[in-house]
Write a protein that binds this DNA or RNA. Structure first.
Length: 457
RNA sequence: GUGGAUGUAGCUCAGCUGGUUAGAGUACUGGAUUGUGGUUCCAGAUGUCGCCGGUUCGAACCCGGUCAUCCACCCCA
């Protein structure tokens, strides 16, 4: 056999069953976005590389898919640059476009570019694929869909709360038990300020994150190795040892952070969100989680992450507040907040839990057996009536053996088969067979339409 | 980017410390049943055993390389 065709690593085909299931997820999410007043936009698959580079940290830049310039992409390069430039850097010299890495940065670009046509606060949703040159793994793809909702142009914490309600409503509608984790960058900034290491936020949050994996001693050793002073580590220790419920944690931190203005501000925000929750509870569990740092470096306030309570897979939804994302595109002082649902991981979770609803509304309801040219021609006008009545129906294209046509209906799980042969044509009726029971009845075309319309509703 | 595992029929997998013609289930095709599917029975087709090389009288099996896939770390949706 010749080499089988294949698709690039980390990408997938979707068959009709998978599409029905994916659309169930997209439809559920879209419907909820709309009821909260968000409007749809789309942006191109590719952006100028300059819009993408530097927005996701050093790691992110490496994971960008770059698109080779068309035409003679090395025309402007002299031999020396071509040789001397390290491979990693050569990319930007021969590629000026790249595939989008997420939907938030293109959205920021969109807002800046169309600022005069947008009424702020602008609430939009966007459901499109994104691409990352990551190494594929369980729950990690190189092409996957994000479903983003963002509000831009408002500082109000009501937006954060609204997003929490949306997250809750979506996962409830999908029938999934989840935990919404909540943190605030300002609280993290406050902690590093208090211990006197304001520039070491990343090292410290990574250390906090590893706490339950490798234990206190190893975390302390690692911090020491990273060059944190003993004094700072000592000061950090109470935070690492912090335990208990959200409210005891918040009480502890309000004492701990009281010398840090930014820390207290963050704490107040977290407190306010939990206040909203108290008055308007949601189904999902909501946890204050200091270990949540999130890699995307544009977040400045609240950070969200949603994890499945039932299946172990990375986060299935995440997001946060970014105060100055549009600043990098030249529009200062516009604050935004948003979250992104990972449709592909949600799919994996639903699949594993077998929670997909058994839905087959739009599938073919009725198949006409093809007995030959005359019969087929006669059936075409009946089909037209059925279809204009909203009944999905089809005629088997070839006049092959009946057994084969029945087997086709069976495989497609088409619930009804109609037989119209010479006999029926003469009598002006249709023999309708219900596949599941095997029952057959003779109906006029009008009765047929009525019978099947009732069956659908 | 670092580490580990696995590649045999369309799919899921057997294949004995290396032995001659590589199997099962399922799916597929035809028939039992020429206007009736899902069950049953009968028959049939299907493989460079991922690829390249080495060891051997002999390799799906052992060794080396390579590619692909999966898993963990990292990062995240």
């Amino acid at each position: 056999m010749a080499d089988k065709p294949s698709i690039p690593k980390g990408t997938r085909d979707f068959n009709p069953l998978e599409m029905a299931r994916r659309n169930f997820i997209f439809d559920t999410i879209r419907k909820i976005f709309k009821t909260y007043g968000y409007l749809p936009i789309e942006t191109p698959a590719m952006e100028n590389l300059s819009s993408l580079m530097g927005k996701y940290g050093e790691e992110g830049d490496k994971l960008l898919f770059k698109i080779l310039n068309s035409g003679d992409f090395k025309a402007k390069l002299d031999a020396e640059t071509l040789h001397e430039t390290p491979a990693g850097r050569l990319g930007v010299l021969i590629a000026e476009k790249g595939l989008r890495y997420d939907l938030t940065v293109p959205f920021a670009r969109f807002v800046v570019q169309h600022r005069n046509d947008i009424a702020f606060p602008f609430k939009r949703y966007q459901i499109q694929p994104v691409w990352r040159a990551d190494r594929p793994q369980r729950g990690r793809y190189r092409e996957f869909y994000q479903c983003d909702v963002d509000v831009i142009g408002s500082h109000s914490l009501l937006n954060e709360f609204e997003l929490m309600q949306i997250m809750d409503e979506v996962f409830t509608a999908l029938g999934l038990k989840v935990v919404i984790k909540l943190n605030n960058r300002k609280v993290l900034a406050g902690i590093v300020e208090v211990i006197g290491e304001p520039d070491r936020m990343i090292d410290i949050t990574v250390a906090i994150d590893k706490l339950d994996k490798i234990g206190m001693e190893k975390v302390l050793a690692e911090l020491d190795q990273k060059g944190l002073s003993k004094q700072s580590v000592e000061k950090l220790k109470p935070v690492l040892e912090m335990e208990g419920t959200t409210s005891t944690k918040l009480t502890f931190l309000s004492g701990y952070l009281n010398q840090s203005e930014i820390g207290m501000e963050g704490l107040m925000e977290v407190d306010k969100l939990f206040g909203f929750l108290k008055d308007h509870p949601v189904d999902a569990a909501v946890e204050f989680d200091l270990t949540l740092a999130r890699g995307l470096n544009y977040y400045t306030g609240t950070i969200f992450e949603v994890k499945s309570d039932e299946v172990q897979i990375g986060s299935i939804c995440g997001g946060g507040r970014y105060d100055n994302l549009t600043g990098i595109f030249g529009l200062e002082g516009v604050s935004g907040v948003g979250v992104s649902f990972g449709a592909d991981r949600i799919y994996d979770v639903l699949l594993q839990l077998e929670r997909f609803p058994q839905e087959r509304e739009m599938d073919t309801q009725l198949l006409f057996v093809n007995f030959g040219e005359n019969e087929a021609n006669y059936i075409l006008s009946i089909l037209r009536r059925l279809r204009s009545g909203g009944i999905a129906s089809e005629l088997y294209p070839d006049p092959v053996k009946m057994k084969k046509q029945m087997a086709y209906a069976n495989n497609r799980k088409i619930p009804f088969v109609a037989l119209v042969g010479e006999q029926e044509m003469q009598d002006g009726v249709i023999t309708l067979k219900e596949m599941e029971t095997g029952n057959q009845e003779r109906l006029t075309p009008a009765e047929l339409v009525e019978r099947l319309s009732n069956n659908i509703s």
